[in-house]
Design a protein around this nucleic acid. Structure first.
Lengths: 190, 190
DNA sequence: CTGTCCATGTAAGGCGTTACATGATTGT
DNA sequence: ACAATCATGTAACGCCTTACATGGACAG
């Protein structure tokens, strides 16, 4: 369960409340691991039961209590263990590819509309990733732990490359559909 | 719910049993929409309740009954409607990127081991995709509905491109880690 | 005679989403 | 006055996975 370990990852830097964690996710890993609020609170409760985290209730005069979670020593061990353990091959679900797979049922204009919608979405996402990426690369210039930062930022690099690839492919499918030239790329086996 | 529509997609070609459908998934779309057996049977029951499919019980002397499902006219309409409807942007979860994001906690050799494991997995998958792809491209040569086939096969083309991209990126991260040169790509905003 | 294929299902559990509920503080 | 932010949670539902259950036919 990666959410558990992502939470431990954030707590390994410093203690945080559930609310803080939600912000941390939204600011960093939401592109490859979105987490919603209620899930974070439930998972924190589980982590506490497993003694991977400890809760400290902070009473603030007049304001609601805040619960700050810290990672325990056994939580750190569990995090390290998980980080170093290869994951089994994952299943992916891409509903858009289902639409294309059965796209023969649609007219050219319907299909091209679908493709263009997806192209727009990806272009937007790409612009967003590039801007976040550039900000992060700036931050890295005067940082002490450049290696850790490099690894974190490289996940964005991946997001950019993979979306660029998807974009090019979508455009080429749209072009081939419009032109009626159903040529397929020629991949060589190795 | 894409599983529903993928099932309708297959049934739009010809009537199939639950068992046949499982095989159809495994032979074609499992790379972007794996479906397991119990889920298919449950979803068929739902589709029947919604009158998108009809069941015919085929009694075969001596052997167990077989239930063959056909798509109804309203099922066809529902399929067409769904196929032509743009999907909302999807959430993706890639646990491997979580491992890299928090990779600062690991040593170089641990991290490189992780990367190499992933590289091997992707190389395998790529070889598999390329071989399936080439078989499909052959089949397309003497087919009548080349447009439909082009769209179906293009999803494999996407699988190959995206895995090639992932592979190159993984290799370059591994190289930069080994060399200690934490340079990041220079993407230009547009 | 063991395993694989054909063929259908049920049950329980896990992870994630959506909606609901509460309430103070700060900014426009 | 109204919205946004801070802050915590519960309840219900949806989709998917894993394991279990059954049983005939056929191949090595």
């Amino acid at each position: 369960m990666s959410l558990k370990h992502a939470i431990l990852g954030f707590l390994s830097f410093k203690p945080l409340s559930g609310y803080d964690l939600k912000k941390a996710f939204d600011r960093s890993v939401r592109h490859f691991w979105p987490a919603n609020q209620s899930q974070i609170y439930r998972t924190l409760a589980e982590l506490e039961k497993e003694s991977s985290v400890e809760k400290e209730v902070v009473s603030r005069e007049e304001r609601l209590d805040m619960k700050v979670y810290s990672i325990t020593e056994s939580g750190r061990e569990e995090l390290r263990r998980w980080l170093a353990t290869p994951l089994p091959p994952q299943d992916y679900r891409e509903p858009f590819l289902i639409q294309i797979y059965f796209g023969g049922k649609l007219s050219d204009s319907e299909m091209i509309g679908l493709l263009q919608g997806e192209i727009r979405d990806i272009e937007e996402r790409l612009a967003l990733y590039v801007s976040i990426y550039r900000m992060n690369v700036e931050k890295m210039k005067d940082a002490d732990d450049r290696r850790s930062l490099f690894l974190s930022i490289s996940t964005l690099e991946y997001g950019i490359y993979s979306n660029q690839t998807a974009l090019e492919w979508l455009k080429s499918v749209a072009e081939r559909l419009s032109s009626g030239n159903f040529a397929l790329a020629d991949f060589q086996p190795r």
